[in-house]
């Protein structure tokens, strides 16, 4: 169980990046966070990861406050961030230094097999394609079996085909242990494909504007009418979140211009 209790972040220069974010995430839930640029999505994720500390409020995992990186929380960034001086297998094993060598190697090999990259175990990261490198990063984050996995625009640097491929693959991996996934994304399709709940944020200060639940059955068909319906709801919410407060009209559902420009 991950709890955000009125989390706020004010930078030393006075900019309020986050304000009053309250959120409960149940085990196994997948939450997507979408919103315009500068709405604090990444700041929020970094606060949950413990890399940054919130200036107000608390973040709790199973009742324990998170003030620095926590063993139950893993993170995947936009870039794979593999260590270039370690082989692929050593990168996957990076977080298991405390285990005996043989056990470490076995778990790394199993994780690599799970992401379909066994044959790359002894390659250097520079020899991987972007999609392969990101799969190694996923394996590295999942190997310590975190209860929460944070993903900061994990697939945005990849081409559309690889991205769809990795989204499916991520769900496949998620099904093994069902950690909480919290995904920050610019891609509404990605949010709708993956998430049970989609949080739309609005900027200045960053706060949650609207919450959209999606109960589409998995695996989700990107072409179905139900998928399209959820996507439209998200786009409409994004559109409203970026409108000036005076002109907000909650009855209006879509505006094609807003849908194209929100990010």
């Amino acid at each position: 169980m991950l709890t955000l209790d009125h989390v706020g972040k004010t930078y030393p220069n006075g900019v309020r990046a986050l304000d009053g974010i309250t959120l409960d995430v149940k085990p196994g839930e997948i939450v997507a966070i979408v919103g315009g640029s500068g709405c604090g999505k990444s700041t929020l994720l970094r606060a949950i990861s413990g890399l940054d500390t919130p200036s107000q409020g608390r973040i709790l995992i199973d009742g324990e406050p998170v003030t620095q990186p926590h063993e139950k929380i893993g993170m995947i960034f936009q870039e794979p961030r593999l260590l270039p001086w370690l082989t692929v297998a050593e990168n996957v094993a990076f977080g298991m230094e405390h285990l005996p060598r043989r056990q470490r190697a076995a778990r790394a090999a199993a994780a690599l097999a799970r992401v379909g990259l066994s044959e790359k175990a002894n390659a250097w990261p520079r020899e991987l394609s972007g999609g392969q490198a990101q799969r190694v990063a996923i394996a590295r984050a999942l190997v310590p079996q975190p209860e929460v996995l944070l993903l900061d625009e994990p697939f945005s640097a990849l081409d559309a085909f690889t991205r769809a491929d990795l989204q499916d693959h991520l769900l496949d991996l998620w099904a093994d242990l069902r950690p909480i996934l919290i995904l920050v994304t610019h891609d509404v399709d990605e949010a709708v494909v993956l998430a049970d709940r989609i949080m739309v944020m609005r900027p200045q200060p960053g706060r949650i504007y609207e919450e959209i639940t999606s109960e589409l059955p998995r695996p989700r068909d990107r072409q179905s009418a139900a998928f399209d319906f959820v996507k439209r709801r998200v786009l409409a919410a994004l559109d409203r979140s970026l409108a000036k407060p005076a002109t907000v009209d909650d009855t209006q559902t879509t505006s094609s211009q807003g849908a194209a420009l929100w990010w």
Partner: peptide, 8 residues
């Protein structure tokens, strides 16, 4: 360095 921090 952040990767190192994440793995504590």
């Amino acid at each position: 360095v952040e990767v190192g921090r994440l793995f504590r």
